[in-house]
Design a protein around this nucleic acid. Structure first.
Lengths: 193, 193
DNA sequence: CAACATTTGTACCGATAGGTATGAAAGAGG
DNA sequence: CCTCTTTCATACCTATCGGTACAAATGTTG
């Protein structure tokens, strides 16, 4: 009971996500956010908490929405298919017309002042978790005979992660989808599998 | 003539560079900068101009100092040696003890608010210029029979750039030098040359 | 030593940052 | 219809942002 909320909370989170995505955590001001969401400042605070909490919720929505393909990619049957889908999916996501270029986990807070440091750490941990998930998947692939014996799963995961991050940086700089796809091609061309 | 400046201008630039490198353009406040440089605010402004001008001068110093190895790398005799040196040099620079982790051209201003947008564009242009320089070097390599015919110099340059940026992101997250070196190994392992 | 040019330190500027106090508005439940 | 609970809009808070006015200090030059 009480006065009903006049905006959809998930739509609001989507709008906020786009602002954080484009401007990063530090570059996104409360004024930017309230303007994009179409809601007054106290309403934002009541619904999501402070800026940091709002970012964390937007990040969560990012991971479960635009970036959810990574989870599906890891369920592909072969290591090769996993890598294929991770990289091509990133090329798509990083350059999707309706989104800002790049990846929130990379450009959300790569280097920042003290105030944003806990967000930077959270994103760092997110990326590390992604690398761990890849390594686990490659561990499995190896036990399934899906990866050559001379390939270290952790090294492969780190390498794929580096290519993913590199594509995100290029997309943040305006690289087109086809250019990113050629990066993927180069990275895939001579993979040890 | 007039009262002599009480600080060394290049030392000051080095200090400012470290702050921008660690915190990015937006995250580095004037207070951070004056404190690190050990100079009062009006002195900083008199010596370098506003924050934007100071960043550009710090970037210039970065390119001519810590990042100067890239120019040398491009002068290596073979494409393979060029790539080798570029990647291993990046692993070193990104994780050098005395520097912040990562690369100023990547984390200086990857995503930011409007106030920092011209810096973002400058860094984007810097990265693009680096890719062009690599492409030119690979063009030459191809004319020298140093690259297989089926390798597109622009694609190779973009791919190497992506790996470089990816390593920078990982270093910004605290990746060790040996981990970056293993990324380099993976990237080099199966290069088409 | 005196005149001058420049830098230095202090103290301040308006604008904006993130965040909130407060009362009116809007429904749900009795 | 009246009460109660929650949200909404305005207006404001303090701290900090980038940037500067001004006068004392420090040399160089004649």
């Amino acid at each position: 009971m009480g006065r009903p909320r006049s905006f959809d909370i998930d739509r609001a989170l989507d709008r906020a996500l786009l602002v954080f995505w484009r401007k990063g955590y530090e570059g996104a001001s409360l004024s930017d956010l309230t303007k994009a969401v179409g809601v007054n400042r106290p309403s934002l605070y009541a619904a999501f908490g402070d800026k940091e909490a709002l970012f964390r919720k937007a990040l969560d929505r990012y991971l479960k929405g635009p970036a959810a393909y990574t989870q599906e990619a890891l369920r592909e049957p072969t290591a090769r298919a996993v890598v294929d889908r991770l990289l091509l999916g990133a090329a798509d996501l990083n350059t999707a017309r309706r989104n800002p270029g790049g990846c929130l986990m990379v450009q959300g807070a790569l280097a920042c002042g003290e105030a944003a440091d806990s967000i930077r750490q959270e994103l760092t941990a997110c990326r590390a978790a992604g690398e761990v998930a890849m390594r686990r998947r490659f561990d499995r692939a190896k036990s399934e005979g899906d990866l050559p014996a001379n390939v270290n799963p952790a090294d492969l995961a780190r390498y794929i992660a580096a290519v993913l991050y590199g594509m995100a940086v290029q997309a943040a700089g305006g690289a087109s989808r086809s250019k990113l796809q050629r990066v993927v091609e180069m990275a895939l061309r001579t993979l040890p599998m």
